[in-house]
Nucleic acid binder design. Structure first.
Lengths: 236, 236
DNA sequence: TGCATTTTTCTTGTCGACAAGAAAAATGCA
DNA sequence: TGCATTTTTCTTGTCGACAAGAAAAATGCA
């Protein structure tokens, strides 16, 4: 649990049945935004106080987060936020590149008109975040943009894995912008627009190729992050 | 809940902290073996009686199963075992073929000696199940064999998705053997042996190609299942 | 007889308490 | 002073109860 405890939710009457989801949503966002740092402890009693709810729904939310790999639990021991294995990101990169390709290819093959509208909305939100130099929003809207593309591909297995990878990418990028916070890559706005055009044109090969290039740039960016001269002060 | 209630676990003293896992393991197996049929209701109170444990750990096990797509829950409504969308298995097939390829290729690249030993053990268990004409064991050991290959590839993202697909494949195949229960494909024993040899030889291309052929045969087998003249009496 | 409404029953979501296990602090000893 | 042991405190896993919401059954009416 971080020193700076985030604000409690509004203490209005909750509808019965919404407790677990409320806790899950908030904790998930905090993990992805690195407000809950990798490796930090997660204490049920403190969470129960903070959310003004009993421990049972807290625990259920934690089971759900554990199932998504965002936290780690062992019996009778305290839970903690999952670490990111920065020393071995290769499996992550491999999976990301392949999933960028597969989901974008499938979107080119299977999208529907309403899909394109959703994708465009997310594209606009991303462009706005870049223009506003809002790193948190940029990272989140980027993930949502690509997730919308995956949904348009209509394969829930790939979409599920890709969402998980996008989540992890959010944490990695959040750390990057925490430390450096300078680069707002306008060229990604342009690349996203090109991706949309290829998808709309149902050019599966073109979309696959572009998605690969796009993903490989992100991989390169993250790799360069770890070859910088100045240390990152990571607690590993 | 099926008419024929499976046996309760041994009512010995449980170690504190093992309750959720016990329930999870048993329910998961029953879902995968189709003892709990797709679409059937899941009742916490009955499970609590059956397992001689309070509802809280039951609920936690159910959250975990829901996270894996094996059951479906909505707030304030009864939970049920996930259906299998037999009318649209194409996403499943696409994901299976790709994951068979990716995991087998990665195993050829990254395996260690102890991995091969584990893979061989599972291969032998599969061969024994085929020889004994034990369909349940054959389905389970086949999944374990391929899961062990995926583990040898050392990419937990792909392994995670593949395990989920293998689980779903278990349910589909279980239904097949429930209905027809005749075919015990000895040639898959031979193909598994060949896969091992290619992996051991670190022939990534060969392993990828063979994995694709292998997976496409399974897809074909399942597809033929649904083009049979005699109806399956599926409740959809 | 068929439908709408009301009542009863059942199931789910959460509560707060108890106790086991782990972690931290205190004590004892060389 | 450093280590081992004991005691205390804290956290987790589970319990059983309460009440909200849903589903089933009963009642009322045309």
């Amino acid at each position: 649990m971080t020193e700076k405890s985030p604000a409690s939710p509004a203490i209005t009457e909750r509808k019965r049945g919404s407790g677990v989801k409320m806790v899950y949503d908030m904790l998930r966002d905090e993990i992805l935004d690195l407000k809950l740092a990798p490796g930090s402890p997660v204490d049920e009693m403190q969470l129960a106080e903070r959310f003004r709810i009993s421990r049972t729904p807290i625990r259920e939310a934690l089971v759900r987060l554990a199932g998504e790999g965002l936290i780690e639990t062992l019996p009778n021991r305290s839970t903690m936020v999952s670490n990111i294995d920065f020393l071995n990101l290769n499996p992550f990169f491999d999976a990301m590149v392949l999933m960028y390709r597969v989901t974008t290819r499938l979107a080119a093959q299977h999208h529907r008109p309403e899909d394109l509208a959703v994708i465009r909305d997310h594209h606009e939100a991303y462009a706005a975040a870049v223009a506003a130099r809002d790193a948190l929003a940029m990272i989140a809207t980027n993930a949502e943009f690509h997730a919308a593309i995956a949904e348009a591909g209509r394969n829930s297995y790939f979409t599920g894995l890709f969402r998980r990878l996008l989540d992890e990418g959010r944490r990695i990028l959040r750390l990057y912008y925490n430390s450096y916070g300078e680069e707002f890559p306008g060229r990604f706005v342009e690349e996203h627009a090109r991706l949309i055009a290829l998808i709309e044109a149902r050019d599966a090969e073109g979309a696959d190729r572009m998605a690969r290039e796009h993903a490989e740039q992100i991989v390169l960016q993250v790799q360069q992050l770890f070859s910088r001269k100045d240390p990152l002060n990571l607690s590993l």
